[in-house]
Structures are given as structure tokens and as C-alpha cells.
């Protein structure tokens, strides 16, 4: 038996040194093991306005990157180890979406920039994300309520963009739909648990919704800021996304014994580069090493 054992050990050691076919894909998306853009033609169809397409990709990419950065801040701080894994999965999905959207942006905005140019070498005022995603994490209730709002809206939008006339954006959206469906379910489950659970969790969830309510309108309006000219069927656009988003939120919050309070909209317009004071420090951290070594390769 012992000679077989030694051989087993050696075999495992050797296999560690071998190349792996799936390469980066294992890492880059955390979950998907295949390239969602494989075989998709990257030429911009004649009917599509390239600058409008670039604006959509940038806006949705920035939403995803900033949301992912906030989820990464939860790492080693989650309320239970199983939630560490779940929050990281969601963060990785959003990071993967940001990377693909930036790559598409670089192909169509005429600058030929790569994903890192967008993430690391733009100033806060050049970011186009909505204010909702840049707010600090707060407690678990706030992060979960934010995730519910964001993923509900994003799913409503991207499920429609999966039918858009740009084949690359359509493929990116199609890959994102099952991811966002999961994010929404995860967040909805937790909103119900916290709303129904204990007095403390109910109070915290109520406070979180009160804090976030002013940022919902910007999100719903932002659909209209960017999407016209991209959707193949514009009549399925802004209003439909608004209705679906609010409908799902009402349903989940009702099940949790909660509601979305009526509050005046916050005065930010992230799609126009008007951000809260929270974005600059977030980006300063995100960009710190890349900017310290601008000539470096990683």
C-alpha cells in the first residue's frame, strides 16, 4: 500500500504544476466557466448609435463596479460564514458584469480603452453610476435593502436589454439575468427574514428603507437617461422597468411587514457625474495601487 501512497502523492504534486484549460475563466467570473461572448460578432450594427451604446455600457458598468466594491468591503465582516460566501458570489458576479461592459464600451466609444482604464484612471466626476450604489454599507440591513433595490431594478432592465439590437450587450445582459435573479432572491429572502425576525431586525430594516428611499427615484429615472436608442423596442423601456421594479419591491416588503416610505428624492444625478461625497474616497481606495504605479503591469 505504501508505494501506491507515494505515487498518489507524486501524482497530486505533478498535477499541481500542469496547466489548466479553463485558465482565467475560473477566476474571472467566479461561477461561469465559459466565455459568454465567445463567437459573438463585436462589430456595431448599423442601426445602433455607438455613443449611446457606450453610455449605457459605461453607466451599467459603473453601477456594477461600485456595487461590487461595496460588497468586497463586507469580506471578513459578514454576520455568518455562509453569508461570506454568498456576498462574495454576488460581488464577483457584478465585477464580471462590469468588466464585460467596460470592454464593450472601449470597443464602441472610439477610444479603444481597456477595462482597467475605465476603472482606475477616471476621476469621480467621470463616473456614471447612480448614488444608491456608492452609499456606505451601513449595517447588514442597509446592505441587503440596497441589494434588493439594485438587483430588482437591474434585473428588470437587463432582462429587456437581452433583446437589444447590439449582440454584445445582448449577450452580456443574457449572462447577467440568471445572476441577478439569484441576487434578487437572496436579498428578498433576507429582507423578509429581517422584517419578520426580531424587534431589532425589524427596526433596523425599517431604518434602512427610510435611508434608501430617497435614492430609488434616481435609479428609475436613470433607465430613461441611458436606454433610449438601445432597446430594440423602446416601449418596453423606462415605464415598464419602473413598474416592474416598484411592483416587486412592494410585494417583497409586504411579505416582510414593511413598506417603502414616501420621501423626497435625493438631489444627485450620478448619470450626469453629480455624486455624493462617498464616491471619491471609494475610488481613491480602489485606484490607489494602480495610480501609485502607473507604468506597472499586473
Amino acid at each position: 500500500m505504501s508505494s501506491t501512497e507515494a505515487a498518489d502523492d507524486d501524482h497530486v504534486y505533478l498535477s499541481l504544476a500542469e496547466g489548466h484549460d479553463d485558465g482565467d475563466a475560473r477566476w474571472a467570473f467566479g461561477t461561469g466557466f465559459s466565455d459568454p461572448l465567445h463567437g459573438v460578432d463585436t462589430a456595431v450594427p448599423d442601426a445602433v448609435d455607438g455613443s449611446a451604446l457606450a453610455a449605457v455600457c459605461l453607466a451599467l458598468g459603473d453601477d456594477a463596479l461600485v456595487a461590487s466594491q461595496r460588497l468586497a468591503e463586507w469580506c471578513t465582516r459578514a454576520p455568518e460564514l455562509e453569508e461570506e460566501v454568498a456576498l462574495a458570489n454576488i460581488g464577483l458576479d457584478l465585477l464580471g458584469q462590469a468588466r464585460m461592459l467596460y470592454a464593450r464600451c472601449g470597443q464602441v466609444d472610439g477610444t479603444d480603452r481597456r477595462e482597467d482604464a475605465y476603472a482606475y484612471f477616471r476621476a469621480p466626476a467621470d463616473f456614471r453610476n447612480v448614488a444608491l450604489v456608492e452609499l456606505p454599507n451601513g449595517d447588514f440591513a442597509l446592505s441587503i435593502a440596497r441589494l434588493l433595490i439594485l438587483s430588482t431594478w437591474r434585473l428588470a432592465l437587463l432582462s429587456r436589454l437581452a433583446g437589444t439590437s447590439d449582440p454584445v450587450l445582448a449577450a452580456i445582459a443574457a449572462k447577467a439575468v440568471p445572476e441577478l435573479t439569484y441576487h434578487r432572491q437572496y436579498a428578498a429572502d433576507w429582507v423578509v427574514r429581517l422584517g419578520d425576525g426580531t424587534e431589532e431586525s425589524h427596526r433596523r430594516m425599517r431604518a434602512a428603507l427610510r435611508e434608501l428611499a430617497p435614492y430609488v427615484e434616481e435609479l428609475l429615472t436613470a433607465t430613461g437617461d441611458t436606454v433610449p436608442g438601445i432597446l430594440a423596442a423602446p416601449d418596453t423601456g423606462t415605464e415598464a422597468v419602473r413598474e416592474e421594479t416598484l411592483g416587486v419591491l412592494r410585494q417583497v416588503l409586504a411579505a416582510a411587514g414593511l413598506d417603502l416610505p414616501e420621501r423626497p428624492a435625493a438631489p444627485y444625478r450620478g448619470r450626469g457625474g453629480e455624486h455624493t461625497e462617498h464616491l471619491a474616497p471609494l475610488l481613491e481606495e480602489l485606484q490607489s495601487v494602480a495610480r501609485e504605479h502607473p507604468e506597472a503591469t499586473w
Binding site: W27, A72, T76, A88, N89, V289
Partner: peptide
């Protein structure tokens, strides 16, 4: 062991490295 590396997820200098490190630290939780 998630902590010493986890501190670098938010500062990783490329998006590819960020995704790799995020996934790696997640693996450690797993």
C-alpha cells in the same frame, strides 16, 4: 487567513487581479 489578503481586494490594481483575489478569499471561507 482571509484577513491578510482580504484587505487587498478593494485595492487590487487591475480588475482581473481583483476578481482572482476576491474568488480566492471566498474559497478560503468555503
Amino acid at each position: 487567513g482571509m484577513q491578510p489578503e482580504g484587505e487587498w481586494i478593494t485595492r487590487a490594481p487591475s480588475l482581473r487581479r481583483k476578481a482572482i483575489l476576491f474568488a480566492k478569499v471566498q474559497d478560503e471561507a468555503g
